[in-house]
């Protein structure tokens, strides 16, 4: 299975170097195994969007825009709004990304982000009904990758919940009353781990990702609930490794969440 995320060729020497560092408990960029790269979230980067967030996770940069429009509800959920998530791996972000319709990497990325938001009931979809069975608000979460330097899952998941959290439902534009803040109930945060040899590191950078044998993303919310998981790549995890990864993701997710919510408060002030 070719993996476009990690096709960047890492010289054999770099592979050895990363493993040698792991033996000493450190990583190629000096982090410890549970340390996430510096995270910077710029809220409201695109003012035309109903909500947006530019996320910089180390050198990885993604832009998430939220658009909200009236639309028809699904027949089986007449009293709920709709959310949909899409990701584009645009060729500007990496020499390994190609133009064209979303490939399997983009589809998986969007679906994992979507699952975290949807399963945690982050958006209060019941508050997004305009006319039951006829008209509801449709929330489009669109993810644009700008610079791919590893771990898109976390950058995009963080960007999605941050963008939703500052989104405004544009009711007045459609003569449907006053604009209101998109009701957000929960704050799911994905944390991704890469297995390199016998070591498992959080928030892998591009070098680490390209030599990882297996990957595991765990999305947890502010109540310590687990909402989504996705294992990837052709290696395996032991059961014990999975248990440890889940616990680590709960802790790391909590730290990242403070960052997401902290930034929002700044925005309000």
């Amino acid at each position: 299975m070719s993996n476009k995320f990690s096709e960047g060729v890492v010289a054999e020497s770099k592979r050895d170097y990363i493993k040698k560092l792991a033996l000493k408990g450190t990583r190629i960029d000096g982090r410890n195994f549970d340390e996430v790269r510096p995270l910077k979230i710029t809220m409201g980067f695109v003012t035309r969007a109903e909500g947006s967030a530019l996320v910089e996770l180390g050198d990885t940069r993604v832009l998430v825009g939220v658009k909200i429009e009236p639309g028809q509800p699904f027949p089986d959920t007449p009293n709920m709004g709709i959310m949909t998530t899409n990701a584009e791996l645009v060729p500007l972000a990496s020499p390994t990304f190609e133009p064209g319709p979303p490939g399997e990497e983009a589809v998986e990325l969007a679906r994992v982000v979507d699952r975290g938001i949807r399963e945690s009931h982050a958006i209060d979809l019941e508050k997004l009904v305009i006319e039951e069975g006829e008209k509801v608000w449709v929330v489009f979460i669109d993810i644009h990758i700008l610079d791919y330097n590893g771990n898109l899952f976390d950058a995009c998941g963080i960007g999605a919940i941050a963008a939703l959290n500052n989104a405004i439902v544009p009711a007045s534009r459609y003569n449907l009353g006053d604009d209101f803040k998109l009701p957000v109930l929960h704050y799911p945060v994905p944390v991704t781990f890469a297995k390199i040899g016998e070591w498992i590191v959080a928030d892998p950078n591009l070098d680490e990702e390209s030599i990882a044998s297996a990957r595991l993303t765990v999305t947890t919310n502010e109540e310590g609930m687990i909402n989504a998981m996705q294992k990837g790549l052709r290696g395996t995890f032991t059961y014990d490794e999975v248990k440890k990864v889940i616990n680590r993701s709960l802790n790391i997710g909590q730290q990242i969440r403070k960052n997401i919510l902290g930034d929002t408060d700044d925005e309000k002030n």
Partner: peptide, 11 residues
Amino acid sequence: GEIALLQMDGN
């Protein structure tokens, strides 16, 4: 006992 596929959704 290795895990080759693992997904989860829900609460």
